Amino acid sequence: MNVLAEWTALVCKELGIDPERIDRDAVLDLTRDVAHGVARPAAPLTAYLLGLAQGAGTAAPDALETLSTLARNWGQATAETLGDH
Rank of each mutant, 00 (worst) to 15 (best):
M1T: 03
M1Y: 09
V3M: 15
V3L: 15
V3R: 15
W7K: 08
W7R: 04
V11Q: 15
V11W: 11
V11A: 15
C12V: 00
K13M: 09
E14D: 13
E14K: 07
E14Q: 15
G16W: 02
G16L: 10
D18C: 10
D18W: 02
E20H: 14
R21P: 05
R21V: 05
D23C: 11
L30V: 02
D33Q: 03
V34Q: 04
V34A: 03
V34L: 05
G37Y: 05
G37V: 02
G37I: 01
A39K: 11
A43N: 06
P44D: 06
P44E: 04
A47W: 12
L49A: 10
L50H: 10
Q54S: 00
A59M: 13
A59S: 06
P61R: 14
P61E: 12
P61Y: 14
D62S: 15
D62W: 04
D62E: 14
E65Q: 12
E65H: 11
S68Y: 00
R72M: 11
R72E: 04
R72W: 07
N73T: 03
N73R: 11
W74L: 01
W74H: 11
A77H: 11
A77F: 11
T78Q: 14
A79E: 10
A79Q: 10
T81I: 11
D84Y: 09
